[in-house]
Design a protein around this nucleic acid. Structure first.
Lengths: 209, 209
DNA sequence: TATATATTTAACCAATTGGTTAAACTATTT
DNA sequence: AAATAGTTTAACCAATTGGTTAAATATATA
């Protein structure tokens, strides 16, 4: 493999990433990818053999990116309240930089759930549960923790995925979507923290490492 | 138009609804729709002329259904806390019966946001805002209301849309998705209500009409 | 019952799509 | 420099796709 083909292969990969993120597998066309990469379509097959294999290479990269980001944030060692705030800040900043990623993943995993198989273990919910239990005291029931986590994800991801709808509805009230998402980085963690206050949750004031 | 063709047309429409919901516009095939309806493919064109027109008929019907459900629940006259509980119960029951609908709408409006134009006015956010302000007293800032509404929608819709992911992750901890969603009808409104308690929100105890 | 109208069928069509092929071109090795 | 290996191109291919056509069939009307 020469420097030239490393270049061609990555050009293809980048173009494919964009096109697949924008259109999904079903609507993406090999000719569109070739056009985006400014190469002859036959090269797609020379380097990646089939559309399916090219798609899988892209999906794997993007899903890894998304799940790793999620998992790493949640497993950080820090006081719980701070972790919630850090999660929203980090996760929503990540989503801001990758606005098409969640919708891409959701589209493809709804079509083909087995695509997820190799990524699920990256999110160890039992591990996260014990970390959360260790981080907080009070009467938060253990069975509430998955709900809490799903709520956290819901509050951060859904407004991104529903952008066209929210943009339309919010603009009726003179609210600008970008500004709304900006505020949300603050509002959403407040919301979560206040919601769990009912359990007399005291976040441990452990010294930070 | 005869009784027979009313029958054929609705058979086509129903089959198209299923196929478009399952696959979206890009991946749906006219032959698949014809097979699902047990008719000859040419009839799709006889009754609906083009794929695009058939899709639009289906999209309009489904989007109307979804937006009308959302809007009607939120404009109910009842005490706020009760409205939140009613919203989650009604909305999540609706989503349970139409599990593919949100993902279908999200997919298509992300691809083509102008599809939304005729439905946005069904959700009058300013109207909802004044209703909520009238329903509750306390110090909930007006600019927090859109965030509250988006949170409510996020908490109800996202777990449906993310079913494959949640199913995978939750099963690792021995949690069954269906049971999780069932619990959520109770957990999510609790969450919302507790979250806004910080504003010294008192829900009006107006007599029900 | 005969005629007109509407519906359905099966065959066909042009365009598009993912993929293949072999020649031309470029880079590397002997 | 010639031979070999690797990359790229442009043309081509078979299958699929949304759509069309005209004949056959069914239904409605006079």
């Amino acid at each position: 493999m020469t420097a030239t083909d490393k270049h061609t292969e990555s050009k293809i990969f980048e173009a494919a990433t964009e096109i697949f993120e924008e259109k999904g597998l079903a609507a993406a066309r090999m000719q569109d990818i070739a056009d985006r990469a400014s190469i002859n379509k036959a090269l797609l097959h020379y380097y990646f053999r089939t559309k399916e294999k090219l798609f899988m290479a892209v999906f794997d990269k993007l899903a890894e990116k998304m799940f790793r980001k999620f998992a790493s944030i949640f497993e950080e060692d820090m006081p719980f309240e701070e972790k919630i705030r850090y999660f929203f800040y980090e996760h929503m900043s990540f989503l801001e930089k990758n606005p098409k990623l969640p919708m891409f993943i959701l589209t493809e995993v709804n079509r083909s759930p087995e695509l997820l198989d190799k990524f699920l273990s990256m999110v160890n919910i039992s591990n996260i549960k014990s970390k959360i239990s260790a981080d907080i005291s009070g009467s938060l029931p253990e069975e509430a923790i998955p709900h809490l986590m799903v709520s956290i994800i819901s509050l951060s991801v859904f407004p991104i995925v529903a952008k066209p709808i929210l943009q339309g509805i919010l603009s009726q009230a003179g609210i600008e979507y970008r500004q709304f998402i900006k505020e949300r980085k603050q509002v959403a963690p407040d919301f979560i923290i206040n919601a769990i206050r009912q359990y007399n949750v005291q976040t441990n004031n452990k010294p930070q490492k």
